[in-house]
C-alpha cells in the first residue's frame, strides 16, 4: 500500500513539474515570426527583423516579465522557561504572474544544544489558478531530523476577509501522509504598527512512531506578533506563541516526560526583498 502511494505521489510530482515547465515555457513564448505578428504596419518603414525584435521586447516588457521575491516571514527567538530556540520561516519565488518556482524553508535551532533540530526545504511549482489562489506542488526535503523526502500538494492564497492561507499535504517517501495549514491575519493599529495573529495546525493520517506522531491533529501553534514596519520591507516584532500537542502525539510526549503544551515569548524580524 505504501509502495503504491509512494509511486503515485512521485509520478504525480514528476508530471506536475513537467507540466509546470511546459506552462512556464508557454507563458514566455512570443510570436517572433513576422507572418504571425499581431501588427506590422511599421514593417513597411523599418527593417522587419528590427521591428519583430522590438515588438517582442515591447510586449514582453508589458506583462511578461519575470520577478523574484524573498521573504523571511519569521526569523525569531522563542523563549520558554527552560529553553531558547531560534525559529525561521522563509519563502521566495521566481517567475511571472501565473507560474512561479517557490522555495520555502522553515526550521528550529536549539541554542541550548547548539544544533538544528528541525529543518525542511520545499521546492514547489506554483500556479495561479484564480485571482487569489495558487496551487503548489513539488518536493519537500527534511534536512533534520531524519532526511525524509515528501511529495507536496498545497494551496496558498488570500481568503475572503483578508486571511492569508498556506495549506499543504505531504506524502513522505515512506508513504506517510501529513498536512499543515497556516492562517494569518493583520490588524493595523497604525499604518506601521501591525498585530498579526497566526495559527498553524499539523495533522497526520497515521501514527508515525519515528517522529513521535499519533494520527489525527498532532499540534497547534497559535501566536500573536506585534511588528513595527520601519519600512514596509523591514519590521522587528515581539509576540507570544502557544504551542500544544494533541491526542496520541501529546501522550507520546508526556510519556517521554515532556510537556504537551507550552507558551513562548518571541522576538524577531520580518523582512523581505
Amino acid at each position: 500500500m505504501r509502495q503504491v502511494i509512494r509511486t503515485l505521489s512521485l509520478s504525480a510530482l514528476t508530471a506536475s513539474l513537467l507540466a509546470g515547465t511546459a506552462a512556464y515555457a508557454q507563458d514566455h513564448h512570443h510570436e517572433g515570426e513576422a507572418g504571425n505578428a499581431p501588427w506590422s504596419q511599421a514593417d513597411a518603414y523599418y527593417d522587419p527583423q528590427d521591428m519583430a525584435e522590438s515588438r517582442n521586447k515591447a510586449q514582453h516588457h508589458a506583462g511578461g516579465q519575470t520577478f523574484w521575491f524573498v521573504m523571511a516571514d519569521r526569523f525569531e527567538l522563542q523563549f520558554t522557561d527552560d529553553e531558547e530556540t531560534g525559529v525561521w520561516e522563509a519563502q521566495g519565488w521566481l517567475g511571472g504572474d501565473i507560474n512561479r518556482l517557490f522555495v520555502k524553508t522553515e526550521g528550529e535551532y536549539s541554542l541550548e544544544h547548539d544544533e538544528i533540530e528541525d529543518a525542511e526545504i520545499q521546492a514547489l511549482w506554483s500556479r495561479a489558478v484564480s485571482p487569489y489562489w495558487d496551487i503548489q506542488t513539488g518536493l519537500r526535503y527534511d534536512i533534520e531530523p531524519d532526511g525524509k523526502a515528501h511529495g507536496v500538494f498545497g494551496v496558498q492564497g488570500l481568503a475572503p476577509y483578508l486571511f492569508e492561507v498556506d495549506a499543504a499535504t505531504f506524502v513522505s517517501d515512506d508513504g506517510d501522509v501529513t498536512a499543515r495549514a497556516e492562517v494569518e491575519y493583520e490588524f493595523l493599529l497604525t499604518q506601521r504598527l501591525i498585530l498579526q495573529p497566526r495559527v498553524e495546525a499539523n495533522f497526520s493520517l497515521q501514527d508515525i512512531p519515528g517522529r513521535g506522531l499519533g494520527s489525527g491533529l498532532t499540534g497547534v501553534d497559535a501566536g500573536m506578533r506585534l511588528r513595527y514596519e520601519i519600512r514596509r520591507e523591514f519590521a522587528p516584532y515581539v509576540g507570544v506563541e502557544w504551542q500544544g500537542s494533541f491526542g496520541d502525539t501529546a501522550d507520546i510526549i508526556e510519556a517521554a516526560g515532556g510537556d504537551a503544551q507550552g507558551t513562548a515569548l518571541v522576538a524577531g524580524i520580518r523582512a523581505w526583498f
Binding site: Q41, A42, Y46, M51, E53, S54, R55, K57, A58, Q59
Partner: peptide, 13 residues
C-alpha cells in the same frame, strides 16, 4: 505613425 516613437509599435526604438 512611424514618427510616433513607440518601440515595437511604430518604430524599432
Amino acid at each position: 505613425f512611424y514618427m510616433d516613437g513607440v518601440p515595437g509599435v511604430s518604430f524599432p526604438g
